[in-house]
């Protein structure tokens, strides 16, 4: 795997979605290439940051009550 390939598939590597062989080729490339290792780590940290800052907003209680009531009304 070359540096350009690593750039193109870095998100899929982080998703763990490439299959064992490609995941392992990607990791081997990182072992040999400090630049790609740094960039991949940067992507990973950015993703963690985004996920943390976009933490889910829960549904308000009044909505849950409204939903529950409307389901039973429609069932009657």
């Amino acid at each position: 795997m070359l540096c350009d390939d690593v750039r193109r598939v870095v998100y899929f590597f982080l998703d763990g979605s490439m299959g064992d062989r490609k995941q392992s080729e990607f990791r081997s490339h990182l072992d040999d290439c400090p630049d790609c290792e740094t960039r991949t780590a940067a992507h990973r940290r950015l993703r963690e940051f985004i996920r943390k800052r976009l933490s889910p907003i829960g549904a308000p209680e009044h909505l849950k009550i409204r939903l529950s009531a409307s389901l039973h009304v429609s069932a009657e």
Binding site: P56, I57, G58, A59, P60, L63, K64, L67, S68
Partner: peptide, 10 residues
Amino acid sequence: AMPYVDSLYN
């Protein structure tokens, strides 16, 4: 369905 209400709302 109710267990997914938070995800759906989000």
